[in-house]
Each structure stands twice: as structure tokens, then as C-alpha cells.
Design a protein around this nucleic acid. Structure first.
Lengths: 331, 331
DNA sequence: CGGCGTGCTGAAATCGCATTCATCGCGGAC
DNA sequence: GTCCGCGATGAATGCGATTTCAGCACGCCG
């Protein structure tokens, strides 16, 4: 069987209590004894039993990460970073795929989260009410890529992202820019739309933003949006995410429209795939790894303020080959 | 605090022993009492403490999945399926990213795997010796996408995959086909190379297979291989995986070579990205989801044979737009 | 010299649950 | 009528660690 703390204690000629202290509260035990115990433990290959420790301390050493779709490059990037940071902090990560289902999402949080030290809830699809419900558990909960009243969160600066993209297009000479939106109800899509209105139009003379409506945030959604963009006479299209931008690229090519010569396309997220296509995608790069790391840090030791922490990470436009001045520049 | 089994027992007016049995060994307790306990448990929102249960049963309800890179679409697809199947079987999944590092891989297996009910080791980078070492733990271990002596495994039929691809190219009229290999030491790459030699050449008259050597299994590796393929005068290139195929596509386009008109390209894996590019990639589709599901099933209840189980899953060529007859057909 | 704080140590309790063992009541067999 | 067996139940034990609590020796102060 596995070697237990009692074995170590016996081999070292001390009581289990002392052995325990030597390993997890070193300054409570006399130096030479402490070193003896540690050496014996190492030699015996002692490995503390997580379950036993959890039972008494109440901490499992597990974090729970819930994402809508593990296969989506956005979430796998976040998951990778979360996993790495958690490991550095001595935590394992239990990851759960909610399959884009709000109900399953809620169940996963309550079931899996119940016996974890904290829950990272990524882009939750569930309603604010359900969110409040699952957050009622005493387990620490942190929202990633979404904000909600009373809950700590880490997001990216969506508004600034679209602004950077639109400024870039305007600077290139585009005057009629289309936005291919994400799914209805998406929190991040709502934020991005906010960036399109307001003072932006005032700052950019002659700019005309046309809304292409809501689409599934996948390749097919981009395909559908492409036709709308052409019909609207836009010379540039900003997509809700990179997958949609890829769909735009594909459909435009099929219809004989050259990118970027005839129409410019901008994505969002800077998923790895953005560099794998031709033309390489100009896109708003979200700091996905940093998002994951920050989330873990914030969950593991939250700031000691009374209001829940809200962090927004900066984004940065990455200009590649899918944007260029329009064929017939305005002015 | 959380509601414990004692609370349920007290509320139901029975002993903790009976309460325990009513929930986890229902036929040992009288029907009306059993239903009473279960109802009370439900009303109180009782949720068994995993740590306490693990401490006594030795089973944690956790599976451990170790992959080289979570961001690689191959592994995120497997991870998604593993997670889904494990949940259906009442298990949570602890996922660990080994960052392509054999040492870290070994450490993760021993550390994380020690307190899991089993370990799924995906495409392990570590040496056969280290593999045997970590497998020496009594925890069930199952290899995914690699075989090793004495260990159970689930793989895809790599040899048949390249054979299907080559037959396809030969049928189109290609006679000079290049193989852009994966990293040296890759188990799956070795299997794929096996498919290229042997009786295949005998069956396909006039076929000439040229080996482009080893490459990093990423976009850049494909770029490098593209120039080699052109220099070798191949009219078709089979890539070790889809990422490399995308690199080939990109480089060929850059050099003014049209795909599939001038050169055909075939990928491997059928990663989601294969359909997102232009031309859509002809590729050998590996049943990634099935791979993950089978792995979980085999780990959770292994066949009662003495030899460790070895399963090979069939693959299927998916013909898309990146392959066509060569410009100047042989014969 | 007595008393008290201090620094270490060990015995024992505890966490929540599963499980063994003993008990009890009851019906059927002899 | 007695005894055996069986089904149902509760008391008690233990899983492996942490953590109180008490005890012990020692040194210092009064």
C-alpha cells in the first residue's frame, strides 16, 4: 500500500503529530528532528493523501473550470493558462465542458464546484438570475469573460477592441464599415456593440457603421454575414470573432471578392488559426493566457476589498494581411 | 456548513449507518425507510463529501488526463470527449498540460495520477523506460495515441490512414508523392511511415514515394516541407498532420503554386480547422471523439484478460478541395 | 527555592463516510 | 415449545491527515 504519515513517523521514531508538523508547519519542530523526518519521508517516498487532508482542512487543492466548449480555441487557450497557473500554485484543475448549455453549466458549477476550492466560470451562458443562484454557494466563484452584479470577474476590454479596429479601418480610408455580430444574449457582443456607437462616430469623420445583426459565432455565421456585408456595400467588415472572420474570408473568395483588395476583414480574439489562413487575419488580440492567469490569481487570493474585484484586460489590434485601403478610397 | 449524512440520519430518525445504506446500498434497507431517507436527503440538499468517501473507499471519482498541449486541436477534441464520457460515468476529469515536456509529463502522471482512479496519458512524449516507470504505480494507466509493451492503449489506425491517402492520390493519377513527416521519435509518425512502405508500392503501379524528412508538427514545419516537396518534383504531398498541411498550403500559394491544380495536399487528423481554409483540406479523419470515449471506457472497466487491451480505431479519408488530378498525369 | 513562561512533543479528538459486527425481532421448521 | 436462520438496524471502527490540548523539561525571574 501507499506509505502513510504514520509510517514516516514510526521510521523516524517520532509521533505522527510531530511528523505532520515537520512537513507542513516546519517552525514548530526542533531543527534536527525536522530534517530527520523530512529525509525519512523523502526516502520512503511519502506522498500525503489529498482526501485525508481535505477532510480536515476543508481545502481540496482543486480548482474547477467550466467552459462552454473545450474545442473552441478561445477556451482551450484560457484553459491551458489556467491549468499552468493553478499548477504553479499547487492546485489541480478539474475542467468541465458545458456544451453551450446553460442548464448543464449551472449543474456543473454546483456539483463539481461544491468540492473544489473555487470555481472559474468562463463566458457563462446562463442568465444573471441563475448566476446569482449558483454563486450563493459559499465557494469562491469568479467570472471570466463576463461581468455580473456582485460577482468578481476578469474580462477583456471589448469596447476598446472594436474601437481600435474601427480606427484602423477608418485610417485606411474605409468609410462604410459593417459589424457582423455574435449570438444574441452574448455579454461580450453587447460590450462590443457599445464600442461602435457613442462618441466614436463623432471622432471619425464620415464614418458609417452598418449592423449586420446577430450570427452564430462560428465559421457558418461568418459565411452568412459575408453576403449581408456585400449587399450593404461595406468596404470593410469587423467580425465578432476569428471563426466568423474565417467564414467571411471564405465566402468572399467564393463570390470572387478579393481580400483585402476589394474588402477588408478584421477578426477578434487572435486565435491561433488567425495566422494559419491566407490572407493572415488582422484581428483584435485578446490576452487569453493572461486572462486565465489573472483569473486564477484573483480566485486564489482575492483582494480584501468589500466590493468584488472587476478586472478588464487591455486588447491590442494586430494588423496582418486581411486589411488594406479600399479600392476606391473615400475623399 | 454543509449538510452531512448525520444530519440526514437525524432528520429521518434513523442511524447514520442506515442513512448511508439507504443512499448507496438501497436493497439493504426496508423500502419505506429507504424512501424516507432519500426524500429527507433531497429536501435537505444533502451532497456526499467526496473526500470522506474517497478516504474510506479509496476511489476519488476523478480521472486524470495528461496531454502534451491543450491548445492543439487534436488534444482539445480528445479532452472534450474524455470529459463528456467521464461525466456520464460519474467521474470528474483533472486535466494537465505537459507542455510537450517529457519530464513534466512524468511528474504530472505520478503526482496528479496518484490520487485519481486512473490516468489517461495522451501521446506521451516520454521514453518507453519512463513510461514503464510511471506505469509501475498501481493506478490504472491507459495510453492514448501511442502503444507500449505491457500497457493498455487506444490508438488510431495510422498505417491504414496513409494507405488510404496514398491510394487516393494514386487513383487521381499522382505518381510522385511526398511525405512530410512529423517530429523524430513520434510514435504515430513511425506508424505512418510503415504504411508508406511494404506492399503498398507493389499494389500501386508506378508509385514513387519521396520522404521529406522530419518536421515540427506545426504550421512552420509545413512551410519548410513545401519547398522540399517542390524541389523533389512531387505532384502531391501528404502531411503528418493538418497543421503542417496548412503550412504547405500557405507556402505553396506564396510561391505561386496552385493547390490543387499544380500540387495536391493531404492532411491528417481532420482537425476542425481543415474545413476553415481555402481550399478545404482533404485529410485522413481520425475519430477523435471516439478515441476519447473509448479511452474512458477501457480505463473504467478494463476487459478481464491478462494481456493489456490494445484497441485501434479505424480512420477514413475525407476528400475535400485540396486534391485533384495532377496537371500532367503520368501515363 | 518556588513559580511561571517557553519551546517541543505526544496522546487524542476530529473531519464525513462506509462497513463490519453485534443485536433484535420474527417466522418457519422440527 | 424451542431453536435456527434471516432480514433489518444501530453501535462502533477506521480511513490518513491536522490540530487541539496537555505534559514535560528547562531557564529565568522574583
Amino acid at each position: 500500500m501507499a506509505v502513510t504519515l504514520r509510517d514516516v513517523a514510526r521510521a523516524a521514531g517520532v509521533s505522527p503529530a510531530t511528523a505532520s508538523r515537520a512537513l507542513s508547519a516546519p517552525d514548530l519542530v526542533a531543527p534536527e528532528r525536522r530534517e530527520l523526518v523530512r529525509r525519512v519521508a523523502r526516502e520512503l517516498g511519502y506522498r500525503p493523501n489529498r482526501a485525508a487532508r481535505e477532510l480536515i482542512t476543508g481545502r481540496s487543492g482543486h480548482l474547477c473550470l467550466v467552459v462552454p466548449d473545450l474545442e473552441n480555441p478561445f477556451f482551450s487557450a484560457v484553459a491551458k493558462a489556467v491549468q499552468a497557473r493553478a499548477r504553479a500554485a499547487g492546485h489541480a484543475v478539474v475542467v468541465a465542458d458545458a456544451e453551450e448549455d446553460p442548464l448543464l453549466e449551472a449543474e456543473l458549477v454546483t456539483h463539481l464546484g461544491a468540492q473544489a476550492d473555487g470555481v472559474l466560470l468562463c463566458s457563462p451562458r446562463m442568465s444573471p438570475d441563475d448566476l446569482a443562484e449558483v454563486a450563493a454557494d459559499d465557494r469562491p466563484l469568479l467570472l471570466v469573460n463576463r461581468e455580473a452584479a456582485g460577482l468578481p470577474s476578469v474580462v477583456i476590454d471589448n469596447r476598446d477592441g472594436v474601437r481600435q479596429a474601427v480606427r484602423h479601418l477608418h485610417a485606411l480610408g474605409h468609410r462604410r464599415v459593417a459589424y457582423a455580430g455574435g449570438p444574441p444574449g452574448s455579454w461580450s457582443d453587447a460590450r462590443r456593440r457599445e464600442g461602435l456607437v457613442g462618441d466614436l462616430a463623432a471622432q471619425l469623420p464620415g464614418l458609417d457603421v452598418v449592423d449586420l445583426g446577430a450570427h452564430a459565432p462560428v465559421f457558418a455565421g461568418g459565411v452568412a454575414a459575408a453576403d449581408l456585408a456585400l449587399a450593404a456595400g461595406a468596404t470593410a467588415v469587423l467580425a465578432h470573432n476569428d471563426l466568423m472572420a474565417l467564414g467571411l474570408l471564405d465566402r468572399l473568395r467564393t463570390r470572387g471578392v478579393r481580400v483585402p483588395d476589394d474588402v477588408s476583414v478584421v477578426g477578434f480574439d487572435d486565435a491561433p488559426v488567425a495566422t494559419l489562413v491566407t490572407p493572415a487575419l488582422t484581428t483584435v488580440a485578446a490576452p487569453l493566457a493572461r486572462l486565465g492567469r489573472t483569473a486564477v490569481d484573483l480566485l486564489l487570493d482575492p483582494p480584501r476589498t468589500d466590493a468584488p474585484a472587476r478586472v478588464a484586460l487591455p486588447v491590442e489590434l494586430v494588423v496582418r494581411a486581411s486589411t488594406a485601403p479600399p479600392a476606391a478610397p473615400a475623399t
